[in-house]
């Protein structure tokens, strides 16, 4: 019983996944978040902004952040 609990709690059921595959999981996560960011309605993004200019578009800011972190995890 204790062995089964430890197997689950310690994620031993994922131990078979290689480090390369695990790295891809992280990279895919960043891409998914990017897609979700793109799906946020523009009206919602600009709420409270002084002007509706492209540089106030927070989607672009967020995609910049994601690009940065994607590259970091791709390299390391």
């Amino acid at each position: 019983m204790l062995k089964a609990i430890r197997y689950v709690l310690n994620f031993e059921w994922l131990a078979g996944l290689s480090i390369g595959a695990a790295k891809n999981v992280f990279l895919i996560l960043f891409v998914l978040i990017g897609i979700l960011v793109l799906l946020v309605p523009n009206d919602y993004i600009y709420q409270g902004a002084k002007k509706r200019k492209w540089w106030f578009n927070l989607k672009l800011w967020a995609l910049g952040d994601l690009a940065f972190i994607f590259i970091t995890y791709y390299i390391f």
């Binding site: 409270g48 927070l58 967020a62």
Partner: peptide, 11 residues
């Protein structure tokens, strides 16, 4: 503003 609140997190 609401925009500043959101932007602060991304910045």
């Amino acid at each position: 503003s609401e925009w500043d609140a959101k932007a602060s997190m991304i910045w």
